[in-house]
Amino acid sequence: MPILACVIGEEFAAVLAAAQDGSEVAFSVLWRDANPALLRYLRVAAPDAGEDVAAETWVQVVRGLTGFRGDERAWRSWLFTTARRRAMDESRRRSRHPVASLAELPAAWEPRTEDAAGLAMENLGTAAAIAAISALPPLQAEVILLRVLAGLDTEAVARMVGRSPGAVRVAAHRGLRRLAQTLDTAGVTL
């Protein structure tokens, strides 16, 4: 039973309804449940921009919140789909303006380094696991992260990444197998 994913469970519908009704506590519950998983996914999907992309994701999500209909699985699917699109936007933006974006935004960049350092200090095991997974081929890494962190099944991940369920399943298994070999030979202790 994952600690991060799907912790709201059967209360989800009530929490979502309260958040859509404007309850700040209910929104905080949704945010606290999902943001750590989003950040961990984005450390691979949007390296060096995870906090920004997560913040942009939430901006979009809160604006669309009242129109959202669905269960917790659909909610997490929406969140991570939004984050994934934002990460792709960000990577395109950076390849178009690689220097200007850095030079323009010193204030926005500083906290991120602190946060990254904070994560490394606070949770070495998580940082090491993310680093090991990010060394996998991109599709394998993304599929594993989405299945584990977003708690989504093969079909939902397949829709998100635009592949067949069979391809997603094979990518996940190959990625885990490769990870097993890497961790085993490296003697990594998490």
């Binding site: 949770n123 095991g125 998580t126």
Partner: peptide
């Protein structure tokens, strides 16, 4: 470890 409990920095925002 990927699913470990959230750290303070992950809830800082």
């Amino acid at each position: 470890a990927l699913n470990a409990a959230a750290s303070a920095s992950e809830l800082a925002a």
